[in-house]
């Protein structure tokens, strides 16, 4: 246990020294502020940019609009940057050979993977909470949130999908031992999910639902129970990839 914590501490130090903590705090708080800001400012901007005299019948923005921005920006910008930031966790060590000494000192190979996963998990949680809490606070301050359904559960879906993507990246990054390996695997995985999503019947189980359905959950168009199977499948896939990474790394030639 103490060697697990020791390695985790090393991961933490590394993330701080390589400015990952700074970037995460910054990007995700800016994202949190931007979501309600964009919604709030859009009508004013429209008025200013439209030619004089044009009559606009824009409905006043609501809490729903603020959350729609959240579901647009957080997965597109936030998740993308997060994956980019944490896509070299394994390849950097494997390319340089920094793990060799620690492994020959008796560091368990599974410790390496689980500690790195835990660190990515922590950062993703931090990133998610930052954006979510800031967007939530602004939205609650400016608008009436009682019209929005399942605020927390819908956001939870996106959070779980992000974790799944991070685990897939970790696997690809370990398997191919190169920075682009992890990214490529993740991109391929997402494209595959989108292709599957072309068939409407896949909506009952496709984990991609965790990403695309939450906006409809807010308005009640998608019932909570419909998310159960995609959620279970996402968690299951996540564990398969995590175990796959551990098993692969246990037998990796260094």
């Amino acid at each position: 246990m103490s060697s697990w914590l020791g390695f985790l501490k090393k991961e933490w130090t590394e993330s701080v020294k390589s400015y990952k903590l700074l970037l995460t705090l910054l990007i995700f708080s800016v994202l949190g502020v931007m979501n309600p800001f964009i919604v709030k400012i859009t009508p004013t901007l429209m008025k200013n940019f439209m030619p004089e005299g044009t009559v606009l019948n824009l409905p006043d923005p609501t809490a729903i609009d603020s959350w729609l921005q959240f579901y647009k920006n957080f997965p597109q910008m936030g998740l993308f940057i997060f994956i980019l930031l944490f896509s070299t966790m394994m390849s950097k060590e494997l390319e340089k050979g920094t793990l060799v000494i620690l492994l020959t000192k008796g560091l368990r190979r599974s410790t390496v993977i689980t500690a790195k996963f835990a660190m990515g998990f922590t950062y993703w949680t931090l990133a998610f909470l930052l954006t979510f809490i800031i967007t939530y606070s602004y939205t609650a301050f400016y608008w009436d949130q009682s019209i929005v359904q399942h605020v927390f559960l819908a956001a939870g879906c996106v959070y779980v999908f992000g974790l799944l993507l991070f685990t897939i990246t970790l696997w690809g990054n370990t398997y191919f031992a190169s920075a682009y390996g992890g990214l490529l695997v993740t991109v391929v995985a997402v494209i595959a999910l989108f292709i599957v999503a072309i068939f409407p019947e896949s909506a009952s189980w496709n984990p991609l639902q965790l990403l695309t359905a939450p906006p409809h959950m807010l308005t009640g168009e998608v019932a909570l129970v419909e998310m159960r199977t995609p959620f279970i499948i996402a968690i299951g896939t996540l564990f398969i990839f995590l175990l796959g990474t551990i098993f692969h790394f246990n037998k990796k030639r260094l």
């Binding site: 700074l22 910054l26 800016v30 502020v33 800001f37 709030k40 400012i41």
Partner: peptide, 18 residues
């Protein structure tokens, strides 16, 4: 828009200086 602008400006200026 001050509640939006203050934190954004603070973050931007802080980041730029850093």
């Amino acid at each position: 828009y001050l509640p939006f602008i203050i934190p954004l400006v603070l973050l931007q200026v802080g980041l730029a200086i850093f």
